[in-house]
Write a protein that binds this DNA or RNA. Structure first.
Lengths: 190, 190
DNA sequence: CACACACATTGATCCGGGTTAAGAAATAAA
DNA sequence: TTTATTTCTTAACCCGGATCAATGTGTGTG
């Protein structure tokens, strides 16, 4: 089941006793999304954080009718609009399922409750954010230090089977260029 | 004194009792840096995190003899190479004092010790990282969503007295463009 | 099968910022 | 103040990717 997945995932961060896991998992809910469904829309409040069990999502800003894709959420990855979750702001981006998906979520209220009940969840949360921070720092750096071409090559190197499942124009958008631009890069490196 | 500053700062995140503060502050050390000094160099290990008391720093990557400035650390801001601190990796960038500076630091070992001794430090740490995450997320977004021109205007709007203290070419580097490019933008908007 | 629609490629042109190089302005040093 | 050094501006040229537009390729639907 999904809970096995999640449990293993969280155990990478902290060791949970069986009782602790029972308390924690009582707050988890599993939700299904069909391809094209939205986990979050612009102006929604983001009251959950979670992990992707199956399928994958992207998130994008809609500006002047154009989708600016800023990232993807893959299986076993954290999923949320975390800044909005923390600040209780309206989301400025969309999170959309690119395939049929399953995610395991926890509501803010339950998380805050767990912070009180289980000190280890504090540690867990800290370590998860630390990882998020390292990830986004890395992406930020690479955006300055590498050319679009290098970023493209880095991407297909890092996730070989990733390209096959995502249309070209999304990757282009993710890399901050036009589909035409990406097409030319591909031509050069073939 | 500096400790008053820091205490106030930390109290924004968690309420510390007097005893807790005494335990925590016993691990804090204050260090002075003259203009031009390095708080961290490439290939150094980063064993401390801290806050800036006075003055300010920048951090930059040195690539092919060129400094790529990626950010600044201002008074009352967190300062570290946090990914390297966490992973115990060698730093890939420099942190340099742009004025005479004073910082309050804590060593990794002391922080880990405090995690055990004072559960509130777990909370504190989590909240600090959450803020770091939100900040870098914002910078990352703005890099895609705004033109260089917009980013420049946003910057001088956000930190009016900031420009005066930093040479143009550093701001250009920070914005990911050449000094010449920034000069043209300035001309356009004058 | 034929058709429609979404996606990818290619070509022509445009444009912003990079690059190079020179000169002006400001700041520091003598 | 004069000189030297750093910083900033300006101009000429170049180049990569954006834009616009047309064509090609594919996939699924009636």
């Amino acid at each position: 089941m999904m809970n096995v997945n999640i449990k293993a995932l969280l155990t990478n961060f902290v060791n949970l006793t069986e009782e602790e896991w029972l308390v924690l998992s009582a707050s988890l809910v599993t939700k299904q999304y069909k391809k094209g469904d939205y986990l979050l829309k612009e102006n929604d409040y983001c009251n959950h954080v979670g992990f992707v069990d199956k399928g994958f999502f992207n998130f994008y800003y809609l500006i002047g009718g154009v989708e600016h894709i800023r990232g993807f959420f893959f299986p076993n990855e954290f999923i949320s609009n975390y800044p909005c979750f923390l600040l209780e702001n309206k989301s400025k981006f969309y999170i959309q399922a690119l395939e049929d998906c399953s995610v395991t979520l926890i509501h803010r209220n339950d998380l805050l409750m767990l912070y009180e009940k289980l000190p280890k969840v504090q540690v867990l949360s800290r370590k998860i954010v630390e990882n998020l921070y390292m990830e986004v720092s890395g992406k930020y750096e690479s955006f300055f230090l590498n050319s679009p071409e290098e970023r493209y090559l880095e991407l297909i190197n890092k996730r070989p089977n990733f390209l096959q499942r995502v249309p070209q124009y999304m990757i282009a958008s993710y890399l901050g260029m036009t589909p035409e631009g990406l097409s030319r890069i591909r031509k050069r490196n073939s």
